[in-house]
Amino acid sequence: MNFLPYLVAIWLFVVGLYGVVTSRNLFHQIISLSVVQASTYVLLLAIGYRTGGTAPVFAGIPVGRLAVDPVVQALSLTDVVVGATVTALLLAIAVQVHKRTGSLDPEDLRRRLGERDE
């Protein structure tokens, strides 16, 4: 029970990676990638948690009160917004690939673009 958050993070990582590896649709791959990103947030916040601690915001409570770690929250916070924007970039690339070749299947694209290089 004490290691459940870490196990959940590992599970999310491996499941998301499985989705990326065995996917037949570019959009499905991109959303599975966002699951992999979510696993890192869970891991970071689980490391910083302290039993009995409160949120690290001292507006209205005394400064000596036990609180959780603020550094990992600062890391996750910017990462959430920036990660979504990078996902948008990947979606834009996928849309353009579909416009050029008419296909969203990674296998099909690999075959088609690989043939053209030979």
């Binding site: 870490y6 601690g53 690290p56 915001v57 001292f58 400064v63 609180a67 959780v68 550094v71």
Partner: peptide, 29 residues
């Protein structure tokens, strides 16, 4: 890793203690 909830690192505690008196910011994040 330490057990879930047994956070040991020094920097979180230092920042929590120092942020309000030194920088006058109540939201440490």
């Amino acid at each position: 890793l330490p057990h879930f909830g047994a956070y040991r690192g020094p920097y979180g505690d230092v920042l929590n203690a120092v942020s309000v008196p030194e920088r006058h910011i109540t939201d440490v994040v």
